[in-house]
């Protein structure tokens, strides 16, 4: 972008305008501008803060389909992955200790923030390659998913728990608890609905997560993380890295503080490698490869089974007597 400015020798308007002008008038003869737009740096979201990769690396993506202008997206490193796990681990105890009602309110607040930033999310998906109709459909489905999981936060326990009729004078019950830090490799598409739909069931039960965002549309993950940042979600509960799954996932799969892996459509050899590395601390590995249609099927995708995959069942015994 800076390079382009130098070539032009004058500031541009929005990139689209500049593109149009360039097409019509050639590079050296641009119309005067009313205002120079402010561009956005797309940072990763770790520990409640927006950060660049410690590695200083970035990937360039077209600002929008068909445009030659590029935007820079951070390319996460192994160290970024470790930092994100540290943030997630630090946030776990507090998040899991929140009341279920409070977690539900925060996820509902997330839905509110997404609704408020609807046009921004739609715009980002359009820039990521979707038609406006597709982008709107995906955004609305994502918002609804947040509302659906907000409701699950204080209800799945009643469905998964049991009072067990043991053959003796004991009070015995089983209830679900969070596992800890879950590493999520989000699906490539749908970039937003898949991201939201994979994060929500993981955090609804008190887990925290490190998410490797879609490589097809990483910017939408960043825009989404801005809704997370304004939704009262404690920093570190969701950490979103942009970059290459095949580069970062193998390190996270080996990380001793990661309790589980949630792999969405991860390439076969990368997934197998991650499953093998997961053995180091007996990580729970879940593979989930849904089609776009399945992500949009609310009844199936909002099933509590997705929460059930990342809870541990704890059984408590106590004698009953005088």
């Amino acid at each position: 972008m800076a390079k382009k400015k130098e070539e032009n020798g004058q500031p541009t308007m929005s990139t689209q305008d500049a593109q149009k002008s360039a097409d019509q008038n050639g590079q050296t003869d641009l119309p005067a501008v009313d205002r120079v737009p402010v561009r956005k740096a797309y940072k990763m979201y770790v520990g409640g803060a927006f950060i660049r990769s410690e590695s200083g690396r970035y990937t360039q993506v077209a600002e929008a389909p068909g445009l030659s202008t590029k935007e820079n997206v951070c390319r996460a490193s192994r160290k970024d992955g470790r930092d994100a796990v540290k943030a997630a681990l630090g946030a776990w105890e507090g998040w899991a200790a929140r009341t279920a009602f409070n977690r539900g309110q925060i996820l509902y607040r997330l839905g509110e923030m997404m609704e408020a930033r609807k046009s921004e999310l739609v715009g980002s998906l359009v820039n990521g390659g979707l038609s406006r109709d597709e982008a709107e459909r995906e955004t609305l489905a994502s918002i609804d998913r947040a509302i659906a999981y907000a409701g699950w936060c204080d209800k799945y326990q009643s469905l998964f728990s049991s009072l067990n009729p043991v053959g003796g004078p004991h009070f015995n019950f089983t209830s679900p608890e969070s596992m800890g830090v879950v590493t999520i490799a989000a699906p490539t598409r749908p970039a937003l609905l898949g991201l939201v739909g994979s994060i929500l069931p993981v955090i609804a039960s008190g887990n925290t997560c490190v998410v490797l965002a879609s490589e097809a549309d990483p910017r939408t993950a960043v825009v989404f993380s801005e809704t997370l940042a304004t939704s009262d979600l404690p920093g570190g509960v969701v950490n979103i890295l942009t970059g290459q799954v095949k580069e970062v996932l193998p390190h996270l799969a080996k990380h001793m503080e990661v309790a589980a892996l949630d792999l969405h459509g991860v390439d076969g050899s990368v997934a197998k490698g991650a499953e093998e590395s997961a053995v180091i601390n007996v990580k729970r590995v879940r593979n989930r490869n849904l089609t776009a249609a399945e992500w949009y099927n609310a009844e199936a995708a909002e099933s509590p089974r997705w929460i059930e995959r990342f809870v541990e069942m704890k059984t408590v015994w106590h004698p009953a007597g005088q």
Binding site: S162, N164, H170, N172, N281, R284, K314, T315, V316, W317
Partner: peptide, 30 residues
């Protein structure tokens, strides 16, 4: 995965048994 309060080593078919962390995953019972 199993916590015994004021008792220990109690088992029952209706009571799920299994571990957290490197004690494995999945439950048996119940």
């Amino acid at each position: 995965g199993v916590v015994w309060a004021n008792t220990y080593n109690k088992f029952d078919p209706s009571s799920p048994f299994g571990g957290f962390k490197e004690s494995g995953f999945g439950r048996e019972g119940g």
